[in-house]
Design a protein around this nucleic acid. Structure first.
Lengths: 348, 348
DNA sequence: CGTTAGCACTCGGGAAGGTCGAGTGCTAAA
DNA sequence: TTTAGCACTCGACCTTCCCGAGTGCTAACG
């Protein structure tokens, strides 16, 4: 059996109608959408074949057809027309992102919220590829003899500061020496190695100094760890607006997966600029009935982050793809201000 | 008509049953819960009077009774037995909070999540009373000639750092002077005043210096502003487990109010250690059908923050009150380490 | 006068049945 | 290969009915 052009045309109409209405679409309404006039009976024959080929399914006899994951896949790969964002929308996206340069953390949090409210699906944002985050530089700002502020410059535009309550009193004079020690021995190496280096220094340092140092290293390790696994999510309440999650049970189940957890389940090591996972293509069981669309953006420092949304398989892929890449571009431009951040030059 | 002891006793049973089951409670099941044996008919007479007095209501004739807000109020004020937390629970709460001393922001975020998952209601945490947050100290760490890290020590244990892309090139030598300027003129004053002081300096400074200074002040102003209105919320998905929010519409409406918004609606200027607002006692329309319980904790620096939960009027007040004050105590102890943070001494 | 047994009554919820219409598959003709 | 026609299916929606939990009232009791 062959996938003729007309079959594709019909499949496209089914998918797009189903995306809009969330209801199985029947032969008559398809006929109305066809430019070349054909009767509903003809459509029915085609539908029967598409169903047999596995692109469509019927919830029950005598209902219309809905796309299967395979159907969506074909749609996404071949049938879907790439939408272009209007200038106004691009402007809006950039306006949301443009902000007095802040922490990466805050930027991605804000971006997540914006994506979600733009697209009306739950969104998530990562600022970690598989690449290890490292400490580029330590600074210590003395506060009093018990407390100091540790400022960490991390790879990928990140700055983290922590108020540290030290385990022993420190003469403020010692801070530069401490910072120096940290900067010479513990920068630009992955977290696990920091522990080893610390061991190497055990004997070369006076015990109190060593104690302090290990406390600082521990804090740095925590910060790295946290950054490495940080995934922010936003807008999972958008689910409740979708008819497929009218049932509180289902909504809750999915929200539990999405909500403020750490080890999430989408494609964390994505490479391409855009990836679409439809239904069972997701590895995580909880996402078997949903689709995920992710785009990657450039954090700088040779690292890439992800920005994506989760929704029903019936997601409006064309719209999501267009807007998501708009956000990814915006983030990339914001974080890599070769020219001015977020100014002009947004074609291609 | 008088509120006899037996009436109170009955009201208490009604409230507690209704809290458990979310269903109107009938005379027979009340009779079963009474220690002194009385017939259901007697109970019915009492119920009729309680209803007339406005403590109970019937969804319809021939259904059992449910408490009115007035009924809950009486319960909360007079009838409810204060629960004591088990040692194990106190331990658990402290364990969640105990963490390698971090930013106040992170502490409260974590606390919010913990509260919510402990109590199974949406939670919120504030770190701002009515008192103005101020900058205690500025530090500038040069990165390169275009970028620096601004570290702000704010009142109430807060440290904020920002990577700042400067509007003009700066010789690293100038940083100490800049920082000094900031620290002498712009610390320990409320945000609006910072603008005024900046104006005063217009003529005394070379133009580039002034420009930089105003950029830094602007960043600081943003940071203060943000801290001042920051309310974190967590766990609003817990709503979906409650029978009163089985309906996705309602859940969505309430979640929209609770989710990651800024100007929220609970009692922001709470004074007492614990406050309970039942149903219509809430000012916000969106919360007219819900109850809010808030406790305040001591941030240090003479500031108080709030930690609270939002739930149905049918909320388990006794449990919430006990656990919430456990959290408030824990936070206070964590943030005010007179002795060691979160160690022993948790009685009273 | 408070308490209790008894009884008729009310009303929501769920089961059972009926109707409607959108949509199908199939057949036969164009 | 396309189309008209037709019988059939099945979920959505409605009405109706029944059941039982729970009430309010009355009358009797201590």
């Amino acid at each position: 059996m062959e996938l003729t052009d007309r079959k594709k045309r019909i499949l496209k109409i089914v998918v797009e109608n189903y995306i809009r209405t969330a209801e199985p679409v029947g032969s008559k309404s398809i006929a109305a959408h066809m430019e070349r006039r054909v009767s509903s009976a003809t459509i029915r024959n085609e539908l029967a074949e598409l169903t047999e080929m596995g692109y469509l399914e019927q919830p029950h006899t005598s209902a219309g057809r809905a796309p299967t994951p395979k159907g969506y896949r074909l749609y996404v790969d071949e049938l879907m027309e790439r939408q272009r964002l209007s200038v106004r929308e691009t402007e809006e996206i950039n306006a949301v992102l443009r902000t007095r340069l802040k922490e990466l953390d805050e930027i991605i949090t804000q971006a997540g919220r914006a994506v979600s409210s733009f697209l009306n699906y739950p969104a998530y944002v990562t600022a970690t590829g598989k690449k290890q985050i490292i400490v580029r530089r330590f600074d210590l700002i003395p506060v009093d003899e018990w407390n100091c502020i540790g400022v960490l410059m991390l790879s990928g535009n990140r700055v983290k500061s922590h108020l540290i309550r030290m385990q022993l009193k420190v003469d403020p004079e010692q801070f530069p020496a401490l910072a120096n020690l940290l900067n010479t021995h513990f920068t630009d190496i992955p977290a696990p190695e920091m522990g080893e280096r610390l061991m190497d220094l055990t004997e070369q340092l006076p015990a109190p100094m060593f104690l302090l140092l290990s406390q600082l290293i521990a804090v740095a390790g925590d910060a790295l760890e946290e950054q490495q696994r940080k995934i922010i999510t936003a807008g999972s309440r958008a689910l409740l607006k979708l008819p497929e999650f009218r049932d509180a049970e289902k909504a809750h189940a999915l929200m539990s997966v999405l909500s403020d957890g750490k080890e999430n389940l989408p494609v964390p090591t994505d490479a391409g600029p855009m990836k679409i996972l439809i239904g069972p293509e997701n590895v995580a069981d909880a996402l078997k009935d949903t689709s995920v669309v992710v785009a990657s953006y450039d954090i700088g420092d040779d690292m890439r982050g992800l920005v994506g949304v989760v929704g029903p398989t019936r997601m409006d892929y064309a719209a999501v793809v267009a807007r998501l890449s708009g956000f990814a571009d915006g983030l990339t431009r914001l974080l890599n201000p070769h020219s001015d951040p977020l100014k002009e030059d947004q074609n291609k």
